[in-house]
Amino acid sequence: MHPVLKLIAQRLALGILLLLAASLLIFAGTQILPGDVAQSILGQSATPEALANLRAELGLNEPAMSRYFSWLAGAIQGDLGTALTNGQDITKSLGGRLKNTLFLAFWAAVVAVPLAIFLGLLAVRFRERWPDKLISAVTLASISVPEFLIGYVLMYIVGVKLGWAPTVATVYDSMSFLEKLNAIALPVAVLTMVVLAHMMRMTRAAILNVMQSAYIETAELKGLSSFQVIYRHAFPNAIAPVVNVVMLNLAYLVVGVVVVEVVFVYPGMGQYLVDHVSKRDVPVVQACGLIFAAVYIGLNMVADIVSILANPRLRHPK
């Protein structure tokens, strides 16, 4: 077998194993949450009779392990069960939320990744001069401010004072594509600011590292313009660390945006997960946890494989 194929197969198998371990951890975690589902659903005003009725109906009296295995068997077949709280089909309601989360993450990535790499290249080109310092200062400042604060500030200035973009980013099916883009303008801006610095700094550092090499000097001596040197010779050799940090940030855009979702009332996975955690809706929490874990593991796997492929020594073994 070609070593690259073997490597990919290995990584996939490892990923699945990791996912199984993650599902066990998630399950153990959901078991030690304080309080119980029935009480959380019915709230303060629940009578003991109503509580007992609901508990029996939800099957909470069954042992935890048997509940876990029957759920896992279902999940492998694509059936995530029904939510304990509102009886809705999890696969269906989660699907819509996942679509929204990916929509937001996609557009944030479309803006942030090229921008970060371009700014990184720019910073190298004007290293230690004012453009480099300005780019670093602005991106570091924006990553240092908590994201909800950036959200509130943008909301106040762009949304309330200038009226350029809606402060509520709720999207729904009957909206046209442009309306949806308009609705997510502010959250995309916030997410871009949050992930920009990390990727930009990594691009800059990786390229600067390569710039010390002898072949760069050769390229310069050949008479290439400095931007061409960076773009043609330095960047391809700096791709592995850059891809790694890009993937890490993409994963963050999918699984870590709860706060931004809450601030802008965006109907994504994060808000969905939080709602169900607070109601102790175990199947939904596990389903969300599994999807988040899969996204994280998957993207990291892609990063691994890409950085190995970017290395000619691995692509063409002797």
């Binding site: 909301m155 949304g159 309330v160 509520v168 601030v263 009332v265």
Partner: peptide
């Protein structure tokens, strides 16, 4: 009826005329 659980988001939505 929009569900706006975050207090700041709720006030901003009213001020920007979305609700």
């Amino acid at each position: 009826l929009l569900v706006l659980n975050d207090a700041t988001a709720r006030m901003a939505a009213l001020q920007s005329g979305q609700v």
